[in-house]
Computed example of a mutant assay.
Amino acid sequence: MTRILLVDDDTELTALLQEYLSDEGFGVATNTDGRAAVAAAVASSVDLIVLDIMMPAMNGIEVLQRIRRQSQVPVLMLTARGDDIDRIAGLNLGADDYVPKPCSTGELAARVRAILRRSGQPAGTAELAPIRAGRLVLDPGNRTAEWDGHLLDLTGTEFSLLEVLARKAGQLVSKQDISKQAFGKPLTPYDRRIDVHISSVRHKLGLRQDGQSRIQAVRGQGYQLLLD
């Protein structure tokens, strides 16, 4: 089993990512101290490190510097959204990739798999398993979606949202679960991002034969993807 170490002081996000990656077939450990990442890299006890930049005591850039002095273990950096300075610094120091926070679990898993494939490591038991929901087929590894054999033009966020619904097609998914799994953060009051992205995905999926949307809202609860 591929071993991943998540290093981040955001314990809520880390717990969410750990649960998702474990379900995807990875062995996942967590820590809030960057020094643990250095120790794991030196001991060759993990196959990939997911490392947050903004941490107390020792930030991610310093941790990455120390890792690269002694190990070439793949490192995926978590950066503040829009912070190009940290992103460039991390890549220049030898980070394999980066994901801006808050991130969706699906996007992070796809980036992890891509890095592992490049490094010749196993990329999880669910890597090649497509998600099928009626005429909808999603490829989590390549983050592509097809409807009735035609490629859907989805943004990364739209794919993450549709993946959450497709995995539980025909079932109600709460807004809180959608927010955590698609956006990587709990739902907050007055947050309308889910509704905005749902509207766009609905348009791209088109209508059912009965004229209804393929994504139905249950007022005050969440959404469900309807099968034809």
Rank of each mutant, 00 (worst) to 15 (best):
D97F: 04
D97Y: 09
Y98C: 07
Y98N: 08
K101Y: 09
P102G: 07
P102D: 07
C103K: 00
C103A: 15
S104C: 03
S104V: 02
T105C: 15
E107Q: 12
L108V: 11
L108Y: 00
A109W: 01
R111I: 06
I115S: 03
R118W: 01
S119H: 15
S119A: 14
Q121G: 10
A123N: 10
T125H: 09
A126S: 15
E127S: 12
L128S: 14
P130L: 10
L138S: 07
D139N: 14
P140W: 08
T144W: 00
T144E: 11
E146L: 08
D148M: 05
G149N: 05
L151Q: 13
T155W: 01
G156A: 08
T157F: 01
E158H: 04
E158V: 07
S160K: 01
L161H: 04
A166M: 05
A166P: 04
K168G: 05
G170F: 03
L172V: 10
V173C: 05
Q176W: 03
Q176S: 13
S179F: 00
K180S: 12
P186V: 04
L187H: 04
L187W: 08
L187E: 11
T188E: 15
T188H: 11
P189M: 11
P189T: 10
D191L: 11
R192V: 15
R193P: 00
D195V: 07
D195L: 08
I198T: 08
S200M: 11
S200Q: 14
L205H: 11
G206F: 06
R208T: 05
D210E: 09
Q212H: 12
Q212R: 14
I215K: 04
Q216A: 14
G220E: 09
L225W: 09
L226W: 01
L227S: 06
D228Q: 12
D228G: 13
